[in-house]
Design a protein around this nucleic acid. Structure first.
Lengths: 212, 212
DNA sequence: TTCTGTGAACAGATTCACAGCA
DNA sequence: TGCTGTGAATCTGTTCACAGAA
């Protein structure tokens, strides 16, 4: 099953396609056309077909794609057929919300630990787990074979937390702090920054006034 | 001050540049080189210079860029010199965290209302505001001249909430629900989806194992 | 010598156009 | 006729290479 690499832009759309496919499966549909997926996801049908052409699953002309086959293949590509263990660091407002987030489990992400350095929150219960000290990360990481780290600490602490994660062997990090963190080449970081999103919307708002 | 359009990819980086610039200003620096910004943000210096070449502010060879001038211009471009009013819909875990988010105010975003449809939460206090019914959005939007809507409701309710926002005159929406929403051409939507981010990291994790 | 500014080369992603099978 | 599959054309963004001012 050697396959040519899938473009990052395509990978970024696979989770959306997959969600639509699962909805279709729930609705009892066995096949689905590129145009239907496109409509639901908000892209051109051409784009969907080009994206799906990178997969092994082929569609049937005049009919569409096999829903179950596409779900299976996208899940496999995204690594969702094996459980991913996640550790969350930072129990502020955002950290609490993330720990309670219902979207983890359905996709196979299992939160195994919630850590912080503030003695005031250590020992309290968040998202069904008891908050432990960040210092215990190495043990937790080894014991639970942790895959991913989620960083929900202030910007000033983010680099040091990520360094600790990397040292503990984590190789993927989701960073909610509004700063860029340096990591070795074999570690992947994605940043989600609410403030950046708001500012980009603000830009679009300003531009609208001028155009209209 | 007629200016040629700034590429979206550049706009997406301006908030990060701006943050670095503000840190530099706080540290008392009057000028900054592209390489320093690049290092802090995690891009190539070439990229920074190309991006800044779309602005009116010019750098000085051998020295760098004027920090204050760049802050002023990026703020203006991003529309951060006028206050933006924001309304939040959905008071689940995520909604609560967003309402309490400290990153709103410093960038000039003022949360003016928190809305929901669940009678159980209406009237309670979230982020210093009393939760009101979604039905009051039209009045709130008119009274406060609301610019932006933040959607923190389940996917199944997102389209209807966004329709309500659009009807109330909002023209920019930040959508945390994991679905694509349809809006008229003159409305801008950005989606932030935790689940998509986790799945992309999961993909990178899978690929690493194969490579290494 | 340092660091900006920018045309040119390159790489990646999207859209178009159309051939071809059920 | 409907919908897939894909090369070609286009568009966008990044990186390179280097000229030029302080």
């Amino acid at each position: 099953m050697t396959q040519r690499p899938i473009p990052p832009a395509t990978v970024a759309r696979l989770p959306s396609y997959r969600r639509v496919l699962m909805d279709a499966a729930d609705a009892g549909q066995r096949t689905i056309a590129s145009g239907v997926i496109a409509e639901a996801v908000g892209v051109h049908p051409d784009q969907v077909r080009k994206d799906l052409s990178h997969l092994a699953t082929r569609g049937t002309r005049g009919v569409g794609y096999d829903v179950r086959a596409l779900i299976a293949e996208t899940s496999s590509i995204l690594g969702l057929d094996e459980e991913r263990t996640v550790v969350l660091v930072g129990v502020g407002n955002l950290g609490r919300a993330l720990a309670a987030y219902e979207g983890f489990a359905p996709q196979g992400f299992r939160l195994v630990a919630v850590l912080d350095v503030d003695e005031a929150v250590i020992g309290s219960e968040v998202g069904g787990l008891r908050v432990a000290h960040l210092d215990t990360l190495p043990q937790v990481a080894r014991r639970e074979q942790v895959d991913m780290g989620v960083v929900a600490v202030p910007g000033s602490a983010a680099q040091s937390v990520v360094d600790t994660m990397v040292a503990a062997g984590l190789r993927t990090v989701l960073n909610f702090a509004p700063v860029h963190v340096r990591v070795p080449d074999d570690v992947a970081v994605r940043r989600v920054d609410l403030s950046t999103e708001l500012q980009m919307l603000s830009f679009l708002r300003s531009r609208m006034r001028r155009d209209g």
